[in-house]
Amino acid sequence: MQRVNMIMAESPGLITICLLGYLLSAECTVFLDHENANKILNRPKRYNSGKLEEFVQGNLERECMEEKCSFEEAREVFENTERTTEFWKQYVDGDQCESNPCLNGGSCKDDINSYECWCPFGFEGKNCELDVTCNIKNGRCEQFCKNSADNKVVCSCTEGYRLAENQKSCEPAVPFPCGRVSVSQTSKLTRAETVFPDVDYVNSTEAETILDNITQSTQSFNDFTRVVGGEDAKPGQFPWQVVLNGKVDAFCGGSIVNEKWIVTAAHCVETGVKITVVAGEHNIEETEHTEQKRNVIRIIPHHNYNAAINKYNHDIALLELDEPLVLNSYVTPICIADKEYTNIFLKFGSGYVSGWGRVFHKGRSALVLQYLRVPLVDRATCLRSTKFTIYNNMFCAGFHEGGRDSCQGDSGGPHVTEVEGTSFLTGIISWGEECAMKGKYGIYTKVSRYVNWIKEKTKLT
């Protein structure tokens, strides 16, 4: 034993070699072989497995989906700052455009905790909710729209109204504003409101030439003092309507412009014939205590009207009353817009006519005020429907199939267009061939041609 100890002390290297040989010859039971080890760690190889990531292109799944990435790591994937920024906006807080917040056709661009709407022409605001041009839906104005110097929408209202708090709607500024039905039992019968379409306001006024200088022999019209197929109006439903009495009662109609003036057809009036105007009328054979009678003290036909040349060209006249009318729910003026808007309103496509005229061709006159909704007829169809001249200051309205029309005794009465609950004068009943005849239409004086003249002559002093 002493000898062994001496050998170990003198030859430590020998001992180490012996131990190493023993270990190498022993069977290893701690580690699995290569094949079995792979069965336990069965993990798919990654895209760049075996390579240094710093030297390969980034992978979106590896960089940002398996674990949260930084902007720089995302930049490695896209290799483009702009594309990385677009991805980053949604990656950080989701897609803010998912709810489609942009209105009126706006395009949404996502941002971090926010979004941006790219608005089409005519709109602005956070969600493109603000109209900035009158060309689109009248700028959301209830009545009139004008573009300011910086191309912003400025709404306005006709006389007797003021802008509401929203700067879009119009509200009454006087007790009985024009064009409004205020009798409670008839307010439910107000005709369907007309909503502004998209309009090209630059070209809204037709490029028409008034044929002022045409000389033409007097034409022989049949029954051209021209509501057939209409309905009984309720008291106060058309408070701007008046009836004219002269040699015979209810020979023509008219509309209240203001307390002192009536507008009617020029062919209705004769110099030297006494005319009485009755406002607030409903049943011409009954006294309903809503009527107001006034005498006409002055007749002003349009300066281009000449019955000797043509009885229905420039067929418009103004009547001055001896005493002002007292405005109330049964006696209310009709609204008159400017030339541009009167023309736009007419193009809405349908209007209402009213009167006490004959209820059928050569038949009896109506006792109760009649009204009828009539569609506008395109000019080409209008011209083809008659052998008589249709001037540019006239328009056609009615039904091709016949059966409904204005008729004798309705002449001078109103053709009105309702705009968001307020009625505007767009025409004056003038003439036609018979009444409600198939293929024939009622012919009306186009008020847009005469609004400046009306307003100039009827100013209240």
Rank of each mutant, 00 (worst) to 15 (best):
N222M: 14
A436C: 07
T381K: 08
K459L: 09
L211E: 07
V278Q: 04
I297Q: 05
A250D: 05
N203M: 07
P12F: 15
V243C: 04
P177K: 01
F55W: 09
I336C: 01
C145P: 00
S423Y: 13
D405N: 15
Y341Q: 15
S25A: 08
G21W: 10
I15A: 06
M437T: 12
C435A: 04
E418M: 11
L130H: 12
D33R: 09
A26V: 10
T276S: 08
A192H: 08
C396V: 02
S365R: 12
H361S: 11
D110N: 15
G442D: 03
S156F: 11
Q237M: 08
R226Q: 08
E73L: 06
T158N: 06
N213F: 05
N48Q: 10
N328E: 02
F196G: 12
S156N: 05
D315P: 01
E270G: 07
L325T: 00
W88H: 15
V359I: 09
S329Y: 07
K455W: 05
L319N: 00
K188V: 11
S329H: 12
E73K: 06
C435Y: 03
T29R: 05
A26L: 04
A207Y: 12
E73W: 04
L383G: 10
K362H: 13
V227Q: 12
T16C: 12
I17P: 00
L189N: 14
F345A: 05
C18G: 05
I112C: 04
F221E: 11
N48W: 09
Y47S: 14
G246K: 00
T386P: 04
V30P: 13
L321F: 01
A9K: 08
R379C: 06
V353P: 02
E72Q: 10
R46P: 15
S114D: 14
R298F: 02
T287E: 11
T81N: 08
K146A: 11
F78Q: 15
V377D: 01
F238H: 03
R3L: 12
Q143W: 01
Q370V: 03
C396H: 02
V359N: 09
E285A: 12
K68S: 07
N59W: 05
S169D: 10
N100V: 07
E159P: 06
L325P: 00
V154M: 12
S354G: 13
C28F: 01
T133H: 14
L14V: 12
H302P: 02
H282C: 05
S350N: 14
E27L: 02
V269Y: 04
K457T: 14
S49G: 14
I214G: 06
V257N: 00
G413V: 08
V242A: 04
G21E: 04
L130V: 12
V154N: 08
W240N: 00
N343M: 05
K311T: 06
T422H: 03
Q90P: 09
N38P: 09
T84F: 05
T190C: 04
Y441F: 06
A266G: 04
V269F: 04
C134I: 02
R294Y: 01
R191C: 05
R75Q: 06
E98N: 14
V419D: 01
L376R: 05
Q216F: 08
A26W: 01
I136V: 07
L325W: 04
V419G: 00
G442C: 14
D110Y: 12
I344H: 15
G246D: 02
G412Y: 09
S148A: 11
E66F: 05
R3F: 12
V174Q: 08
H314S: 04
S148E: 10
V154R: 09
S70A: 14
K234V: 14
I284N: 07
A317S: 04
M394Q: 05
